[in-house]
């Protein structure tokens, strides 16, 4: 992008944003181009112009990743309890109810069995819109179940992460989910089947520091923010502004943290190929 365009863009941006009717058009957060929302959807929530990856809902993720008509959800009824009786400005369970309403999901993780190009697999994904994809007992339980299912059914596991980390409102129990899920992976390794972890924007905190970075193969979507500490925490700690691209997928590839970056539209092909090699 030339600097001339960059200079000119802010004004236009402001005006156009207001005039774009929601539902029909979608503006790209990456390049600013406005596309027909239906086309963005067909491109699996990526920008048809620049390939920018929008965040995608958990259910859409599984529906577009797994073979059609092959998906069976597991543990759909799991909901959190509140043993800490946690209350900040709101009661925890009230927050959960509100999140269930706004995200149209009972929790922040969806687990399913299904097929990928005919191969039976276990697949799970975060729903980031549910309390920032935070990992509490239910998420930890479902992730653990994913590995137990994989072990039992001798099937590979693929998990899509999108999470701010542990869910504070469940206190120490949310922290313990890190140990629980990691221990489950340790058992799953005996199955002889691979665990492919797909890191999507954003994957930080307790989720990054447990199962998400324990994949036999670790794949990241382009431009995903992945790290232990969030950028704001790091900036406050070191009192410096972070360089552009810090903790993004490309940075992680450079630093040897992940195996590859794969665009969303290629994920099915690429992961099926990986399973073909490994399973």
């Amino acid at each position: 992008m030339s600097w001339f365009k960059r200079m000119a863009s802010p004004k236009v941006k402001g005006d156009e944003k207001a005039s774009v009717p929601t539902g029909v058009w979608k503006r790209c957060d990456g390049c600013g181009a406005v596309s027909v929302a239906e086309l963005v959807k067909q491109a699996l929530e990526t920008c048809p112009q620049c390939g920018y990856h929008f965040r995608i809902g958990g259910r859409d993720r599984l529906r577009t990743f797994l073979d059609p008509d092959s998906i069976y959800e597991v543990g759909a009824r799991l909901e959190p309890l509140d043993p800490l009786e946690f209350k900040d400005q709101k009661r925890y369970l009230d927050r959960v109810r509100a999140a269930q309403k706004s995200a149209e999901e009972p929790e922040a993780f969806i687990l399913a069995t299904g097929r990928l190009k005919g191969r039976p697999i276990v697949a799970g994904t975060f729903e980031f819109r549910f309390m920032g994809g935070s990992m509490g007992s239910v998420v930890g339980e479902k992730v653990t179940m994913a590995f137990e299912l994989g072990l039992e059914q001798k099937a590979p596991v693929v998990l899509f992460s999108a999470s701010g980390g542990a869910r504070m409102q469940e206190g120490i129990l949310s922290l313990m989910q890190m140990a629980k899920t990691s221990a489950a992976i340790s058992r799953f390794r005996e199955s002889g089947h691979p665990f492919v972890s797909v890191l999507t924007d954003p994957t930080t905190g307790g989720v990054a520091a447990s199962f998400a970075l324990l994949g036999d193969i670790i794949v990241a979507e382009p431009g995903a923010l992945v790290g232990f500490a969030g950028p704001r925490v790091i900036e406050q700690t070191i009192r410096q502004t972070l360089p552009a691209g810090f903790q993004r997928s490309e940075f992680l590839l450079d630093h040897g943290v992940i195996d590859m970056i794969v665009g969303r539209r290629d994920l099915r092909d690429r992961i099926a190929l990986l399973f073909d090699h490994l399973s």
Binding site: V74, G75, A76, R77, L78, E79, P80, L81, D82, P83, G136, S137, V138, G140, E141, M145, E148, L149, E152, E170, L173, M176, Q177, A179, K180
Partner: peptide, 12 residues
């Protein structure tokens, strides 16, 4: 460790 309801038992 964890506190869940309606499915603490595994659903298989």
């Amino acid at each position: 460790l964890g506190a869940v309801t309606e499915g603490a038992v595994r659903e298989l």
